[in-house]
């Protein structure tokens, strides 16, 4: 991590990510919060690019921005009254307590970890290395995750089937 360009990119990305993350917390409109969250995801993807982890950066954008954020937007839209002025809630005090505890844990971990610094350009993980690792060393967790996702998909279809379709299947 040297060179003016890399440092500048780091600080700009850090500023964008932190400001967007702050925006998620303070915006009273739930939909604005989701849009700020998307900006945070993009900023984190930028950090992955800085660490030469191109594949993970692209996966971050595809999965978090392309799929998860869009699903969150959809969920917000389908909830009436959720999008406009959502500031007051009686869960404010427990929320503050929980976030203080979380922040304490994070600060403790960050302070107590022995961070190693490395010189030179970080060697990023190439896509073929990642594929080989997923399909040889980590093949069992990988397959279990895909079975879980398939089960979720089938379950979602079963939940949304209409009575007419059920009746038709019973006849067949």
């Amino acid at each position: 991590m040297d060179g003016f360009g890399v440092s500048l990119a780091f600080w700009v990305l850090a500023a964008i990510t932190l400001v967007a993350a702050g925006g998620v917390m303070v915006s009273r409109n739930l939909l604005h919060a989701v849009l700020f969250l998307i900006l945070t995801f993009v900023g984190v993807a930028g950090f992955f690019v800085l660490l030469s982890a191109d594949f993970i950066a692209m996966a971050q954008v595809i999965i978090y921005v392309g799929a998860i954020a869009v699903l969150v937007l959809f969920a917000v839209l389908l909830t009436p009254r959720a999008s406009r002025d959502n500031g007051e809630t009686r869960w404010a005090l427990p929320g503050v307590l929980l976030s203080v505890c979380l922040a304490a844990i994070f600060l403790f971990v960050i302070h107590d970890t022995a961070w190693k610094t490395r010189d030179g350009v970080p060697q990023g993980l190439s896509a073929s290395d990642l594929g080989t690792a997923l399909l040889t060393t980590w093949v069992v967790p990988f397959e279990i995750a895909s079975v879980l996702l398939t089960a979720a998909l089938v379950g979602a279809i079963m939940l949304t089937r209409s009575p007419e379709e059920e009746a038709e299947d019973a006849l067949a």
């Binding site: 849009l35 594949f55 692209m58 954008v61 595809i62 921005v65 392309g66 799929a67 869009v70 896509a127």
Partner: peptide, 22 residues
């Protein structure tokens, strides 16, 4: 000429959906 350019294309083409939604 990045090594994951196909994924880059997919990732960037996910962004206009958000713009149209906005």
């Amino acid at each position: 000429d990045i090594p994951v350019s196909l994924m880059y294309f997919l990732a960037v083409s996910a962004l206009p959906v958000i713009a149209t939604f906005m």
